[in-house]
């Protein structure tokens, strides 16, 4: 187990380094930030002063070296637009995005698993056909369009729920959260459902496939033969086994939720990291883009690591195979 975790950790560190290089190199190709910072009337001296102050006069490898050294100390440069630490700006926006993603994840589990298990157990019933048709729709509908339609129906036509922003927030452990106030919660519902839609469909599919496969296995028959109640067989014996793929995929998809929150946040003007990156790309705010990407890479690497470890606990075969290979 320890060997496994160490191997995975080393791999993660390597990925972070490679990605930092790619991100830095790639983003350095974006536009010319000097053009934005300097007014048209500025003379050559002024331009050079700006270039020097941003460290753009040094060769790229020095810039990269400085970038890594500073990044290790949590300094990812100052935003060209906001004039503050890029990392600080992103960290400030992070709770909003995480709140949204977690709410969506919760919905995917609470709605997806029961529906999936039901349709796996009664695959011929009409309701499970409706569920499956719904999940195909959930896969096919483009997130942003569904978001627009939500706004149109629930905000414009019915006027039930607000369509933009986070609403009232309260501080919880030093972090502003929306879900504890009624106003904030009403702001959270539409974006969270919108973001969750794809994942709900995915969980339905996984749970259904798992259920259909496991229901015919010997240990389920044995549990039934022992005289256990159907409820217990489903809740304990079946659930435990369908959870393996669901946990893996959901863990991996949590990163996807954060990435896709870019779309949902843009639609619902949710003040999170996703909206920030879109604004930054359009404003060529390099430090913020780089900082966002590095944070996303870190988040992903951590998620992958946690999922791998969890997975190896749930299914020891993975661990053995990896150490052998």
């Amino acid at each position: 187990m320890t060997v496994f975790i160490i191997r995975r950790l080393m791999q993660s560190v390597l990925v972070v380094f490679v990605m930092s290089f790619l991100v830095f190199g790639g983003v350095n190709l974006v536009g010319d930030p000097v053009e934005m910072m300097v007014s048209d009337e500025a003379d050559q001296e002024e331009r050079e002063r700006v270039i020097r102050s941003m460290g753009l006069d040094k060769p790229w490898y020095v810039q990269y070296g400085l970038f890594v050294a500073n990044a290790a100390q949590g300094d990812l440069g100052k935003s060209f637009v906001y004039g503050e630490q890029a990392l600080g700006i992103i960290v400030q926006r992070m709770p909003a995005t995480f709140e949204l993603a977690l709410a969506a994840l919760l919905m995917a589990i609470v709605i997806g698993i029961p529906l999936g298990v039901y349709s796996g157990l009664n695959s011929e019933s009409r309701f499970s056909k409706v569920i499956m048709a719904g999940s195909i729709l959930g896969f096919s509908l483009p997130t942003f369009w569904v978001g627009l339609m939500f706004i149109m129906v629930f905000a414009v036509m019915l006027g039930w729920l607000p369509s933009t922003g986070r609403g009232e927030t309260v501080e919880l452990l030093g972090i502003n959260v929306s879900f504890l106030t009624t106003n904030g919660l009403s702001h959270l519902i539409l974006p969270a459902v919108n973001l969750a839609l794809f994942k709900i469909s995915l969980v339905i599919r996984l749970a259904r496939a798992g259920t259909r496969e496991i229901v015919h296995m010997d240990f389920i028959k044995f549990a039934r033969a022992k005289g256990l109640s159907t409820q217990r067989v489903i809740m304990v014996h079946l659930m435990k086994n369908i959870m393996i793929p669901v946990v893996t995929v959901l863990g991996l998809e949590f990163g996807g939720l954060i990435a896709f929150s870019v779309v949902t946040e843009t639609v619902f003007a949710w003040p999170g990291m996703g909206k920030l990156i879109i604004d930054s790309i359009q404003g060529l705010d390099r430090p913020v883009i780089v900082a966002y990407l590095m944070i996303i890479v870190l988040v992903f690497v951590v998620i992958n690591l946690v999922v791998d470890v969890l997975y190896s606990i749930l299914d020891p075969r993975v661990r053995i195979q990896d150490v052998k290979g």
């Binding site: 195909i136 483009p142 369009w145 706004i151």
Partner: peptide, 30 residues
Amino acid sequence: NGFDYMLSGKYWISFFPGIALLITIVSINL
């Protein structure tokens, strides 16, 4: 483009292209 007009109730500019997109994607998926 239709997003800008949605809040004033002009739904069709976003709605119908979305339906077309949906039909395309669903049929390919099926």
